[in-house]
Amino acid sequence: MNTLRKYWAIFQITLINSLAYPGELVGRSLMIVPFMWIFYQLWKVTFAAAGTDTINGMTLHGTMWYLMMAETIELSRPQLARTISENVKDGSIAYILNKPYNFLLYQFSNSMGETVFRAVMNAVFGGLMVWWLAGAPPAPLGWGFAILALFGTWIMNFCIACLIGLSAFLVEEVSPFMWIYQKLVFILGGFLIPLDFYPNWLQAIAKSLPFAYMIYGPSKLFVAPSVELLVNVLSMQAVWILVLGAILTLSYRRGVAYLTVNGG
């Protein structure tokens, strides 16, 4: 119980820190507004050109709220990989390692503290914009299911971002891995285009990889909630969290074994 309290305190401190600069928080969250506006222009024209209200089971209203959730997830991700790689490169990891907490759980609590308010602010601004453009938000059940799946998304993102950050033990520059990870989430997660609009073969590939359960899963649950989809998304998230968590733990142990700290 004491262990949990420790990480809960770390989470709270970061959360309070993120509220210390409300102007910065609001400014950053406003970024979702022009994105939602341009998505609306694109999909409005696309649906009109298709001459139908529904494309592969998605309406314009559903597509816009799907994209709002997808944007909220993406824009709320903290720069965890960059932080960890800086910790590794400048040696400040040594100051964290000798503290009475687990490095990975510390980073997780820290990153969650940053994520939560960003997500709320992005959902508020993005939601208001989409409400104005496309109509009222989905039913409360969608919100509930999506929030459940969001926890899995955040844990999966944490595992991958941590792995990229820890790769600084082996390579000089981790930025390219971060860019490519982000673009894989874009394309295979269904971030800019819902996976429903993809050709079948690409949908099959995307759904056999973790990215689809980070963006598409929660966003689809948001606009088309069903118990069957919820079970599918949560179970696939659990599988990927086990796989990614195991790889992360092993990589962390090997990385720390490499670490040489000179002086202080």
């Binding site: 694109l42 024209v45 696309t46 050109a49 298709a50 390579v171 000089e172 520059e173 930025s175 390219p176 891995f177 860019w179 490519i180 982000q182 673009k183 894989l184 874009f186 394309i187 800019l192 285009i193 609009f197 993809y198 050709p199 690409l202």
Partner: peptide
């Protein structure tokens, strides 16, 4: 690493547009 990484990044990003235009042909 940064030069090659950025090119790869752009390739992957652009693929999204290829998927879009493959499905919807033109805007």
């Amino acid at each position: 690493t940064q030069v090659v990484g950025m090119m790869l990044n752009n390739f992957i990003y652009f693929a999204i547009w290829l998927i879009f235009f493959d499905r919807f042909k033109d805007v």
